[in-house]
């Protein structure tokens, strides 16, 4: 099977995860219906991110265009997420499944400006999207790589279920959550 065929398969899964995440979010936060949109990281998202005004101590150490292009070139089994409120970009995330499909990790995630309509929802939305993708590719774990070293944020990630060390490499600076597939 050639790479383009496989790549197209993962594209379908990725888009399905975005659509399901949006649908689930709207079910619990109906005020955002007709306002929220979850997309891949398209050109418009890249240009919008350039316009964010973020204080120096919360700025990112990567270039979103470079990372997105690299992931599109090298990682078919990836998740991409741009979170929109109307025309305003509120968050970005990119991650990928490990080679053995044991883990889907969020490698880069950035929230928008300090005050934005979806502040406080970016991490749970990104987490849910990554988890749905993980289930689709039969990975047992999701992870957040290099979580920011802020005690309040670390406690927040733990409250969202990311409360384990990397089970495959405990020295890795990451927080992991086991995907539980028999709930409710």
């Amino acid at each position: 099977m050639n790479n383009q065929v496989i790549s197209n398969k993962y594209q379908k899964i990725r888009l399905a995860a975005l659509a399901q995440t949006q649908s689930d979010f709207e079910q619990f936060e109906p005020d955002f219906i007709d306002h929220i949109d979850l997309t891949e990281i398209n050109e418009y998202a890249l240009r919008s991110q350039d316009e964010w005004e973020i204080p120096v101590n919360r700025q990112i150490g990567w270039d979103w265009r470079q990372v997105r292009n690299q992931y599109r070139r090298d990682h078919m089994a990836r998740v991409e997420l741009a979170v929109w409120y109307d025309e305003e970009l509120c968050g970005l995330m990119i991650g990928k499944a490990s080679d053995g499909k044991l883990v889907v990790k969020i490698n880069y995630i950035q929230g928008g400006q300090a005050e934005n309509p979806l502040k406080g929802f970016i991490v749970p939305i990104a987490s849910h999207c990554a988890e749905l993708f993980a289930v689709a590719v039969e990975a047992d774990w999701i992870g957040i790589q290099d979580p920011i070293d802020d005690e309040d944020l670390l406690n927040y990630y733990r409250a969202l279920g990311f409360d384990e060390r990397d089970p495959f490499d405990p020295r890795n600076n990451a927080l992991f959550k086991r995907v539980v597939t028999d709930e409710d």
């Binding site: 689930d24 979010f25 079910q27 619990f28 936060e29 973020i54 204080p55 120096v56 919360r58 700025q59 990112i60 150490g61 990567w62 969020i106 490698n107 880069y108 995630i109 950035q110 929230g111 928008g112 400006q113 300090a114 934005n116 502040k119 406080g120 929802f121 970016i122 991490v123 749970p124 987490s127 849910h128 988890e131 957040i144 790589q145 290099d146 979580p147 920011i148 802020d150 309040d152 944020l153 406690n155 927040y156 409250a159 969202l160 279920g161 539980v180 597939t181 028999d182 709930e183 409710d184």
Partner: peptide, 28 residues
């Protein structure tokens, strides 16, 4: 099956520092 988990996650109060870089390498 995981709807209730997601609903709970959305109710977890994010800290005021939940903006900008949330994970990934810091700016050098």
């Amino acid at each position: 099956k995981s709807k209730s988990s997601f609903a709970k996650a959305l109710k977890v109060k994010a800290p005021s520092s939940a903006y900008g870089r949330l994970a990934g390498p810091a700016k050098a």
